[in-house]
């Protein structure tokens, strides 16, 4: 018996828009994944601590506030500080294309923007987890 894919979905900072993340949570549930949702207004440190305790395969951070270039570096630093190197970090939401390039360069594995079809989200997660391999 192998484990299901575990994913933590998080909303960080002053961003009260969670309809998108709830739709994604529902899609991933229907794809057979175990989804932990943190709720709104978490700090990067809290999200990193939760991802470690939940031992998730994937940490998905949804941001519609425009604060992604501030928040992702803190999350990446937090994971590094805890010695975590096998959690796949995903960004989701509304971000300019040049920021997507910058985020991937700093260590976000993939950024799924607002117009990503649900099946693409599911396939991307399954592919990234398969590439990482068992742990």
């Amino acid at each position: 018996m192998t484990n299901k894919i575990r994913i933590l979905l998080a909303k960080v900072g002053l961003d009260g828009h969670d309809r998108g993340v709830k739709i994604v949570a529902r899609c991933l549930r229907d794809a057979g994944m175990d989804v932990v949702y943190t709720g709104l207004h978490r700090s990067p440190e809290e999200v990193v601590a939760a991802a470690v305790q939940e031992d998730v395969d994937v940490l998905g951070v949804s941001l519609l506030s425009g604060a992604h270039m501030t928040i992702f570096p803190k999350i990446i630093a937090g994971l590094k500080a805890r010695g975590v190197d096998d959690i796949i970090l995903l960004g989701g939401g509304v971000m300019p294309d040049e920021d997507v390039v910058a985020l991937k360069k700093m260590g976000v594995h993939e950024v799924l923007l607002q117009d990503t079809p649900p099946n693409t989200i599911i396939q991307t997660i399954e592919r990234l987890v398969a590439e990482r391999g068992d742990r």
Binding site: L28, A31, M33, D34, V36, Y37, G39
Partner: peptide, 9 residues
């Protein structure tokens, strides 16, 4: 699906 959404946090 066997999946779940865990929201106790």
């Amino acid at each position: 699906s066997g999946g779940s959404i865990m929201g106790d946090r």
